[in-house]
Each structure stands twice: as structure tokens, then as C-alpha cells.
Write a protein that binds this DNA or RNA. Structure first.
Lengths: 202, 202
DNA sequence: TAGGTATTAGGACAATTGACCTAGAAGCGT
DNA sequence: ACGCTTCTAGGTCAATTGTCCTAATACCTA
């Protein structure tokens, strides 16, 4: 097999395992077992674990950028695009309830480890942040675009954390509904509109 | 020294290190070095690392319960009590920006490790959840009390996660202000009141 | 002070980790 | 078929992990 393909397999396996088990808890042996390679052979593709982590983050950055570009290419209204982001909580519900948000948990782990790659992992947040900011600007909330982007990013992180702690999909649906209502209330020129709270939660 | 005192020292050192570095990344040697004990002596106090984790969680449950009881003992209005919870984000800002929320990050790590103690760590969330729920009931939002409690818990988790990723205290202050406004809007019988968004965020 | 219990230090243990080396297999252009 | 580069398997290495044992010390009671 050509090196680039093997490398890609390794990165994708590491991507999944870093998400499911965490960076530190995933060993080279785990990834080797998944890919079907010998342990020792890793050194040919990645000199250190940090180098592998860097490749995984780069891979995630590319995947994320391409997803966001895809959403932006669609001829949708900006608020509908923002809803695409919110809907990630529903689309990836099962994984999120099991392992949290891939971005949030990675940044959290790297923060605790005081790892050099922490700032690079935070670029994943930046991708969402600036994309959301752009949508809010197009939405007509130029001045507050970044704060609104941070707000919705914050909410999705909070939902993901509690979803993983409680494994409660009704809560997730409920809060996604709240985010939709909140977003509707952000339309500029809309008369005052209180944030509603659906109460289907058990 | 009496065993109970040493045990307490160990638990408190482990509590801090588990928070700052994470459960897995903290070794017995780290804790021993902090407390000033020999590594081997640990086995006398805790047979396994899981037993130590359990003691740490128990310790956190007691600390948290006592904090919440203290807030509830004060003759305050329920919404002011809820603000005490929100203010934790300000009071512990430095630590949160460095290591995230102690509860959220522990639950997240244990979820990834598929650890038996995960549900016990989630009891920490339950403590806050039920306490907040009680305040919202006293606030006159009987029917939606639990959903409102989960909502504010979710927000504090989201703020903590992004605070750790961005180390941005303006963001924290901004979102705390938003939570205050949101809370004011939850007063029953209050005319519609839109969630405001302060825009001091850089 | 004597005797027994409670507590400690220091080290041994196997297992696992990331890192690294080397011999050789596989692939490819000539 | 040749030679050269690319790639791989298996193993070694020191360090660190949680666990566990044992001899010695500290402490308290009688």
C-alpha cells in the first residue's frame, strides 16, 4: 500500500479513537490494531504522538471547513444555515450522548494536559465561530455578530456536555427547540419575543 | 499522623489534581509527591485508583451539598439564589479558564473511559439540577422548574467549555450578563422580555 | 516501660507506554 | 532481471503505570 493511503487510514482511525476514548487513553497499539498494522511501523508514518495529533486536528479542520463551505454554498437564508449548525446536535445525537462534542472534549483534554496543540484544536472552534459570525452578519446583526456566534456555540457546547452526562435525548430535543426559538427572536426588527421553553422534558 | 487525616489530605490533593490535570493523567506518584508521602504507602489508604476516585467524588458531593445548603439557608429570593449559582462562573473564572468546570470535565472524561464511576460523577450535576429546580419552583415556575434548571446548567457548562478554550473573560462576563437578563425574563407574569445581548465582546 | 496496633517507607512486580532500530519484503522504473 | 526507493514486521528500550509486599517506625494502651 502506498504511504499516503496508509497515513490516511491511520489518521482516520486516530480521529475516531481520539474522539471515542480521548487522546491520552488511545495508544499507538489501539490504532495499529484498528488499522491492521504492526506497532513498530508507526514510526515510519508519524515520528511522535504529537505529530499524529497534529495530523488529526488538520484532518478535522479540513472536514469541518468542507462541511461549512457546503452549507454556505446552498442558497439558504442565513438563519436556515445557522439551523444547520444547531441541527448537528440532533444528527450526531447518539455519538454526542456517548462521547460529547468532538471539538469541546478535545480542547478540554488538551487544556488539562497543558498541551501545545491546544490552541490548534481551538481553531476548530474558530471555524464554527467565524462561520456563524458571518451568518449573523448576513442575518442583519452586523454589530453583535461575533457575540451571537459565541452565544450559540456556547449553547451547543452546554447541550453536548449535559447530553453526555445524562444521555437524555428529550433534553437535547428540548434545548434545540429553545435554540430555534431564540434564533427566531434574533431577527432584527422583530417585536420583543421571549425565549420560550418547551416542557416535554421528563 | 492518624489515618483519617492522611486520608483526607490524599483526597484533597487528588481532588485538586484530578481537576487540574484530569483523572487518568494524574498518577499516584503525583499525589504522593503533593502530600509528601511515599508511593507505596498509598495502598494502605486506598486499595485501587478507582477507590480513590470514589472518595474524591464523595468529597465533592459533600462540598457541593454544603455550598448549596448554605445558599439555601440565606433568606434570599429564589432568583437571587440562582444568581449565586450563575456567579460561580465569575468567582471561579481563573480556574475555569485554565481547567474548565470540575463537574463537566470529570463527567466527560469518565464518559470517554467508559468508567463505572461516571454515573456517580453525574450525581454532582444532579445536586445542582435539583437545587436549581427547587429554586425555580419557589420562583413560581412549578411546571417548568426542571427544564429551566437544565437550561441554566447547560448554559454554565457551555460558558465553562468556551472559557477554557478561549481564555476570554470578556466572553464570560458577557454571557453571565445574558443569563441574568434571561433569568429576569423568567419571572412569571412578567411581560414579554427579549433576551438581551451585551456586546462588549471584543 | 513493655507489647501490640496503626502507620509508614522503600522497593518489587508485571504490564503498558511512546520511541526507536534494523532486517527484509514489496513495488517500480530501467 | 536488476537495483533502488518505499514500506513493513517484529523486536528492543527505558520510563512509567497501578498494584502489592515486607520490614521498620510511630503511637498508644496497659
Amino acid at each position: 500500500m502506498v504511504a499516503a493511503a496508509t497515513r490516511q487510514q491511520i489518521v482516520e482511525a486516530a480521529d475516531r479513537l481520539f474522539y471515542e476514548r480521548g487522546f491520552e487513553a488511545t495508544s499507538f497499539a489501539d490504532i495499529a490494531g484498528t488499522v491492521g498494522l504492526s506497532r513498530g511501523n508507526f514510526y515510519y508514518h508519524f515520528k511522535t504522538k504529537d505529530e499524529l495529533l497534529d495530523a488529526v486536528i488538520t484532518h478535522r479542520l479540513l472536514k469541518t471547513r468542507s462541511m461549512l463551505d457546503g452549507w454556505e454554498a446552498k442558497a439558504e437564508a442565513p438563519d436556515e444555515r445557522i439551523l444547520s449548525f444547531v441541527n448537528l446536535l440532533i444528527v450526531n445525537q447518539t455519538k454526542i450522548m456517548a462521547h460529547g462534542c468532538p471539538v469541546g472534549t478535545l480542547c478540554g483534554e488538551l487544556a488539562k494536559l497543558d498541551h501545545i496543540a491546544k490552541s490548534r484544536a481551538a481553531e476548530l472552534f474558530d471555524l464554527f465561530r467565524h462561520w456563524l459570525s458571518r451568518q449573523f452578519r448576513a442575518f442583519g446583526r452586523e454589530a453583535e455578530a461575533d457575540a451571537l456566534a459565541m452565544h450559540i456555540l456556547m449553547r451547543s457546547q452546554g447541550v453536548a456536555t449535559l447530553a453526555a452526562a445524562y444521555c437524555d435525548e428529550i433534553f437535547v430535543r428540548n434545548e434545540v427547540e429553545n435554540m430555534r426559538a431564540w434564533l427566531a427572536a434574533q431577527r432584527p426588527g422583530t417585536p420583543v419575543f421571549p425565549e420560550t421553553h418547551s416542557q416535554q422534558h421528563s
